[in-house]
């Protein structure tokens, strides 16, 4: 799966599929997923619970076996080539997982030694995530937030070029969330590619430069965050004669909905086109507001459509 086209992609999957077999039959967790994460920046990975985000991440990291499809990290096919690229990848998958009777430092030291990483890097990682002074405590005594910090410290041991973080702010207090968000943003700006799987959409919108949205294991949308938000720009207009305005706009590339006393117009056209169309029809605007959707709106719209589609088409095999 190595080609010129993939040279600038840190993560790439093609036709990725994962099926789980059980007593109740086969369940498809990921189906024909084409994922492309460009080098550098923070890439959001969004999807409702059970949409296949974690399964996809686990397949990329060799923890789960793909039923079908191809995957590559840094242009190297995985899982076969994982040993060649794993030193460039740091990851937190789902909840932090460490030995409970070991101290935080012992857990990090064991992982560092397995890669011949110097003890100084353990100190640096502990310091970066703000666990200095508590690293000698047993892991089982940590709060969830401290466990998350330790997991992030573990990813920093290898000085990774790709950081895969699955819900990294789970259990953190607001200050902790802000710190981690800043850490992620700083890492993204420093050239590290961060794949951020999160259900906190405001967080993704704040730190991500690009995003992929999946539902029922399928790709729903992918691209720059700006593009994803702009794809369904709408305007709220207030006019004296809503019926006349509706008739005038119906002839153009507009999708018009009544929204209380105002109209909501969805279009790819610029606002000037709306004023011109209405002016030519003798309808005069008293108010025009660009209603820019947030990522949550886009996400809910896409995933609800997918749920409907899935109900009709079936997402299970």
């Amino acid at each position: 799966m190595s080609s010129a086209a993939t040279a600038d992609l840190v993560i790439e999957t093609r036709g990725l599929r994962k099926e789980f077999s059980g007593r109740r039959g086969t369940r498809v967790a990921v189906q024909d997923l084409d994922l492309a994460v460009p080098r550098g920046g923070v890439h959001g990975f969004l999807g409702p619970n059970g949409s296949g985000k974690t399964t996809t991440i686990r397949m990329l990291l060799g923890l789960a076996r793909a039923t079908r499809g191809e995957m590559a990290l840094f242009g190297t096919t995985v899982p076969s080539g994982l040993p060649q690229v794993i030193d460039r990848v740091g990851a937190v998958v789902e909840m932090p997982k460490f030995l409970p009777h070991f101290t935080g430092r012992q857990n990090l030291t064991i992982l560092a030694r397995s890669k011949g990483i110097a003890a100084e890097r353990v100190d640096a990682a502990v310091d970066t995530v703000g666990l200095t002074g508590r690293d000698g405590d047993r892991y089982r005594a940590y709060s969830l937030g401290m466990k998350q910090r330790l997991a992030i410290a573990a990813t920093l041991l290898k000085d990774p070029q790709l950081l895969i973080l699955d819900e990294p702010t789970n259990g953190l207090d607001p200050a902790g969330i802000r710190e981690i968000r800043e850490t992620i943003r700083t890492l993204g700006e420093s050239g590290v590619t961060v794949l951020l799987s999160s259900h906190i959409l405001a967080e993704v919108q704040q730190v991500c430069t690009s995003a992929t949205i999946i539902g029922n294991g399928r790709l729903l949308a992918s691209g720059r965050v700006e593009d994803l938000l702009g794809a369904s720009t709408s305007y709220r207009i207030v006019v004296d004669d809503p019926d006349a305005a509706r008739r005038a706009l119906a002839e153009g590339p507009y999708d018009v909905h009544t929204d209380g006393t105002s109209l909501r117009v969805e279009t790819q056209a610029p606002a000037a086109e709306i004023t011109r169309t209405l002016g030519e029809a003798g309808v005069w605007l008293s108010e025009l507001t660009s209603v820019r959707p947030d990522l949550e709106t886009v996400f809910l719209e896409l995933t609800s459509q997918d749920t409907l589609g899935n109900t009709q088409g079936g997402g299970q095999a």
């Binding site: 060799g62 040993p83 794993i86 992982l111």
Partner: peptide, 10 residues
């Protein structure tokens, strides 16, 4: 923690 270990040595 087995998965953590495999993230360092796959």
């Amino acid at each position: 923690s087995m998965s953590n270990q495999l993230l360092f040595e796959p």
